[in-house]
C-alpha cells in the first residue's frame, strides 16, 4: 500500500516508516499539517496515518478539509490524547480508525492491514474458523467439531486473538497488552495461566497435540492441523 504518514515527531515517524516498509508498504512522511494536507490532496495514497497535534494545521482540520475536498482516502488517526471526546470527534470528522499513543507497532500494522482489506471484505469478522474450532464473536460461542466449549470471558478474548490471525506468533507482552489495556498487576505470568486454562479446555485427550503452541523465547502461536 502507499501510505502517507503525517507526524511531527521525527523519531516516531521514522520508526513507523521503517516498520511499514518492512511490511512491504511504500511510505511518505510529512511533519507538518499544511504540507500533509497538500500531499494528501494528490489522492495517490491508499491510507493516511494522521497525528492530531500538528504544527500549522491540526489533524482534525486536515481531515475535515480532505473530506470537504472529496478525498476519501482511509485515515487512521494517531493521538496522545486518549479522551473519549477526541475519539468521537475523530470518527465524526471522518476518520476510519483511531489509535492512541503510545501504541504497539504490531497493533499499528494490524490496523493498517485491516484498513487495507476494507475495500475487498467487510471488517466484521463475526465468525472465525480455525481447524476444528468455530467462533461466533457476536454470541460469544465456541464449538469444537460441533460440540460447544464453555469459555470464561478472558479465555474467549485470548482465543479470539489467536483465531483472528492463525499461524502468527504473539509475544506474551503483546497478548497482555491487547487483553488488559491498562498496566496492572496482570503480567506475562497471568497470560501463562490463561493459556494453560485455555489449553485444558480445548484439548480432547492428553495425547492430543495442543492447539496453542509455545514458541520458545518468543511467545505463543496457534498451529493449524495440516
Amino acid at each position: 500500500m502507499r501510505i502517507l504518514v503525517v507526524e511531527d515527531e521525527t523519531q516516531l515517524s521514522l520508526h513507523i516508516s521503517r516498520a511499514l516498509t518492512r511490511a512491504n508498504h511504500t511510505v511518505e512522511i510529512r511533519h507538518d499539517g499544511a504540507e500533509g494536507f497538500e500531499q494528501a490532496r494528490s489522492g495517490q495514497f491508499d491510507l493516511i496515518l494522521l497525528d492530531i497535534n500538528l504544527p500549522n494545521m491540526d489533524g482534525f482540520t486536515v481531515l475535515r478539509k480532505l473530506r470537504e475536498a472529496h478525498i476519501h482516502t482511509r485515515v487512521l488517526l494517531l493521538t496522545a490524547r486518549g479522551e473519549v471526546g477526541d475519539r468521537v470527534n475523530g470518527l465524526k470528522a471522518g476518520a476510519d480508525d483511531y489509535l492512541t499513543k503510545p501504541f504497539a507497532m504490531e497493533e499499528l500494522l494490524a490496523r493498517v492491514e485491516v484498513l487495507g482489506r476494507r475495500t475487498a471484505t467487510p471488517n466484521n469478522e463475526t465468525l472465525l474458523e480455525a481447524g476444528p474450532l468455530r467462533m461466533d464473536v457476536v454470541h460469544r460461542k465456541l464449538t469444537r467439531n460441533g460440540a460447544q466449549v464453555a469459555l470464561s470471558p478472558r479465555e474467549f478474548e485470548l482465543l479470539q486473538i489467536f483465531m483472528q490471525e492463525p499461524g502468527r506468533t504473539f509475544s506474551r507482552e503483546e497478548i497482555c497488552e491487547r487483553i488488559w489495556e491498562r498496566e496492572h498487576e496482570y503480567d506475562t505470568r497471568t497470560v501463562e495461566i490463561f493459556i494453560m486454562r485455555l489449553r485444558k479446555k480445548l484439548s480432547v485427550s492428553e495425547s492430543d497435540p495442543p492447539l496453542i503452541e509455545t514458541v520458545r523465547g518468543v511467545g505463543y502461536t496457534m498451529k493449524l492441523p495440516a
Binding site: L12, A104, M105
Partner: peptide, 24 residues
Amino acid sequence: SADASHQLKTPIAVLRAGLDEMRS
C-alpha cells in the same frame, strides 16, 4: 492536562516504537 497528556505520551510513544523495532 491536555498539554501534559501530549508532552508526556509522545516520548513514551517514541520509546515504545523504538523498542518494538528492536524486537522485530
